[in-house]
Design a protein around this nucleic acid. Structure first.
Length: 489
RNA sequence: CGGGGCGUAGCGUAGCCCGGUAGCGCGCCUGCUUCGGGAGCAGGAGGUCGCUGGUUCAAAUCCAGUCGCCCCGACCA
């Protein structure tokens, strides 16, 4: 691979393409510990832009950031029966500290429900203390068997929102609200369309009453669970004695929600937009939106071209865009590297726009703009370069979103699919299949065993088919709900 | 945990069967010529051959053990 300039193509081996792209675009690297990765500056830069936008959205919906400890008493995890069953097999446990064996082992958080609701219980006495709307940005550890860069690693970065409410209805409203915050972010910022809906019991978060999810389709037609929002009911409130006195004077358990997205989103971004030349980052999330590649033949040209290139850099860097702030521009003035080599490199890294500028352009007061998404070149005058760049970036953001949406729709199947055909599809190219479901966990399990496809969500209304399916995909019994089936990451 | 594969320069590898000075490509450093889609030439740096032990005059190579990683199957954002 190292001596081969081209990536393995997606058609040949999607998985190999993904790994090579992540590694060679310098988003991440393997660490000395199995299953752990280092997020490199080009990958972390994307995460930082995601964080910034999500954090703003959380604040806009009334949440405050806080930080809770990494280490959790093992006994905490045991307090919620379903929760401990779900997470105990995946926890890393600290048994020694300061050279001595600990009386009680500490677990490294796989998620923070137990710690946070234990603390909420101390802070909440009255309905006047509610709702309590908290978010934390943190790392968590889950001891996974098989790992993949960004998609599943032993340690990952995420945010986890945790809220407490006085009523069940408020908690449900919050759960749905945050699911929509995620959806809006994924569609507008990541240009990654998602299907939202309810998880079945088998995929529900351990300890939740209801789990909602955003599911995105990757280019291999597999589903990526990109974000989840849980209505926890009173499960954790009961386990941690999180009670409050109501307006009428009675003592009641609070209603909780939790919701999270992780660095997995970076993997989703790669698998949604990448092509055989490498990464394609939607402009809103690109740490660098435009790279200037100067071209020269001799020292005289070099001086003239670089001088003007620097003034273009200064000009563009001063441009302020409404949603995304100042233009993020980089001048690639490295010596000893031919322009063509730079083009390939910046394309691999997914930078949205490239500005080529050479002696001929200098004399004509123009430059060449090249879009990363469709690689179309345009010659434009330097007089209005700021407007042109800004417009192009906006157009690209939209085009990438539409393209991803169209691809998903083209690979979705609705209406009256036979089970035999379903199996063929899942053995072949895969798809998002909307089909009837009888509601039986046995049927769901059988289909999973026979096809490796699972119910990703019971889609929200806007995603459901115009005509509700009448019978269950497998058993043929009357369908009680429409389900979205796909193989999943 | 079961099955398969691999550890040799930063990366990718040859050499191993048949023991005898560790080689190649990419990358890196220096210089000159180049530069509008992956540059050329010349010179140069870089290696405890995963680790431990054994056999041998001699081990990357043979033997034993050990560690690690990757891929495929049961859990998961």
């Amino acid at each position: 691979m190292a001596d081969d300039k081209k990536l393995t193509t997606r058609a040949v081996d999607f998985s190999a393409w993904y790994n090579e792209t992540v590694l060679r675009a310098e988003l991440a690297d393997y660490s000395p510990v199995r299953g752990c990765m280092v997020i490199r500056p080009r990958g972390y830069g994307i995460w930082e832009r995601m964080q910034r936008q999500l954090d703003t959205a959380f604040k806009d919906t009334g949440h405050q950031n806080a930080y809770f400890p990494l280490l959790i008493p093992e006994s905490f995890l045991r307090k919620e029966a379903e929760h401990v069953e779900g997470f105990a097999p995946q926890t890393a446990v600290v048994t020694h500290g300061g050279g001595k064996k600990l009386d009680e082992p500490l677990i490294i958080r796989p998620t923070s429900e137990t710690m946070i609701y234990a603390m909420f219980a101390k802070w909440v006495q009255s309905y006047r203390d509610l709702p309590l709307l908290i978010n934390q940005w943190a790392n968590v550890v889950r001891w996974e068997m098989r790992t993949r860069l960004f998609l599943r690693t032993l340690e990952f970065l995420w945010q986890e929102g945790h809220t407490a409410h006085a009523t069940e209805a408020e908690a449900e409203e919050e759960t749905r609200r945050m699911l929509n915050v995620y959806r809006d972010f994924m569609e507008a910022w990541m240009a990654m369309p998602v299907v939202t809906g309810l998880k079945t019991d088998s995929e529900r978060f351990a300890g939740a009453v209801r789990t909602y999810s955003c599911e995105a389709m990757m280019q291999d037609n597999k589903a990526l669970q990109a974000g989840t929002s849980h209505n926890l009911g009173q499960n954790f409130a009961r386990a941690f004695d999180l009670k409050f006195q109501s307006e009428s004077g009675s003592t009641e358990f609070a209603w909780n929600t939790s919701w999270g997205v992780s660095t997995r989103l970076v993997g989703g971004l790669v698998m949604t937009h990448g092509d055989d030349f490498g990464l394609r980052i939607p402009p809103f999330l690109a740490p660098i939106e435009l790279v200037i590649v100067p071209i020269w033949r001799n020292d005289e040209d070099r001086t003239r071209v670089l001088e003007t290139a620097r003034s273009i850099l200064a000009d563009l860097s001063g441009w302020e865009r409404r949603k995304t702030g100042k233009l993020r521009v980089h001048l690639d003035d490295r010596e000893g590297m031919k322009p063509g080599a730079k083009y390939y490199e910046w394309e691999l890294r997914g930078i949205p726009l490239r500005l080529e500028f050479g002696p001929r352009d200098l004399d004509a007061n123009q430059c060449v703009l090249v879009r990363r998404d469709n690689r179309v070149k345009r010659t434009v005058t330097l007089d209005s370069i700021g407007e042109d760049v800004s417009d192009l970036l906006s157009i690209m953001q939209t085009d990438m979103r539409v393209a991803a949406f169209d691809r998903r729709e083209a690979n979705s199947i609705r209406g009256g699919i036979t089970y035999d055909r379903f199996r063929e599809v899942m053995e072949g190219d895969g798809a998002f299949v909307y089909a009837g479901f009888c509601g039986s966990a046995t049927c769901e399990q059988t289909i999973k065993e026979e096809t490796k496809a699972t119910i990703r969500v019971l889609p929200d209304e806007e995603f459901r088919s115009a005509e509700a399916p009448e019978t269950c995909l497998r058993c043929g019994a009357k369908s009680v709900v429409e389900a979205l089936w796909a193989k999943a990451y």
